[in-house]
Simulated scan of single mutants.
Amino acid sequence: MIDLATWNLTIPVGTPAKVIDTPRLVDGYSDPYFRSGDNLFFWAPVTGSSTSKSEFPRSELRETLSDGTLRNWTYPEADHRLKAVLKVNQVPSTGRIVIGQIHIYQDKGPLLKVEYQYDAATKKGNVIANYRLKPGSEDITVVIAKDIALGKPFSYEVRFSSAGYLNVSSQGYSWGKQISSSWKNKLLYFKAGVYALDNAGYKNEGGQVTFSQLDVAHTQP
């Protein structure tokens, strides 16, 4: 069973989108957008509501402490890791969903978005890293792994060292980059789930994923 004691959950309901706190998640919270147990199920329809800093719907976990307090960190304080095993069950018509992030506290423009991008012609998807070298800079896109079918389990891992080295790996492929030191004082946090990069269509269109493993660690170098 995946430990939910260090996460809260945003679901695409209400304006702005509703947040389910950590203690409630641990007690076994369930709704049409999220279910827990041996696996974690996430559903974000394109008709769902969004957060105040976004235009797209999400069913997504965000790092916290066990009492529900938001957990934010700076990269020099530890070596940071997010590891997941999941399968993508459905994508919106754009073919794009975000399945993991390093976000920046109270600001737009995450440092990293791990995306699954589906090609309807080939019926396969790629794992993509979209990262920002500096705060506020444009996204740089890197393909990490290719040819992953809907419904096929795959893994990804994000490592961000205390020295500012960012590494993303998936399915035996790995990419890394030294990130600008201008990030070093920014408060960051991990996110994971499904963030559908689409907000137009019918209520049965959206992003749906199932995680069988989700682990976060912050260890002293």
Rank of each mutant, 00 (worst) to 15 (best):
L166T: 01
H80G: 06
D31W: 10
G109T: 06
F41D: 00
S180M: 11
S137R: 13
S59K: 01
L112D: 05
Q220D: 09
Y173M: 13
S54Q: 10
A17Q: 00
T6N: 15
L25S: 04
K83L: 01
M1I: 13
L4Q: 02
S169H: 05
L4R: 01
I20A: 07
I144T: 04
D27C: 11
L111E: 00
P153D: 04
K191S: 08
T210P: 06
P135L: 11
G201L: 08
W73M: 09
D67G: 13
A149Q: 12
K108H: 06
V26E: 02
I179C: 03
H218E: 10
Y156F: 13
Y118L: 11
K53E: 12
A84L: 08
K177Y: 11
V46L: 08
L9H: 05
S155T: 05
Q213C: 05
L187I: 12
S180Q: 12
P32V: 10
G48V: 04
P57W: 01
E115A: 04
T122Q: 13
Y116I: 01
S182A: 14
G164Q: 06
Y116P: 02
T122L: 11
I148V: 04
S36N: 13
A84G: 03
E63R: 06
E138S: 15
Y33A: 03
K53W: 10
Y202L: 12
V46N: 03
G37H: 12
N130R: 08
S162C: 05
I104D: 05
F41L: 11
L86A: 13
S155M: 03
I179E: 02
S50I: 09
S169L: 05
T64H: 00
I140P: 02
G28H: 11
L4D: 03
A145Y: 07
S169M: 06
W7K: 04
L150C: 05
L25D: 02
N126W: 04
I99S: 03
E138M: 15
P92V: 07
S66W: 10
E138K: 13
G100T: 14
L214C: 09
V85H: 03
T15D: 12
L112H: 09
G14R: 14
V98R: 09
K146T: 15
P221K: 05
N39T: 15
H80E: 07
W175A: 10
R96Y: 08
I179W: 00
G193M: 06
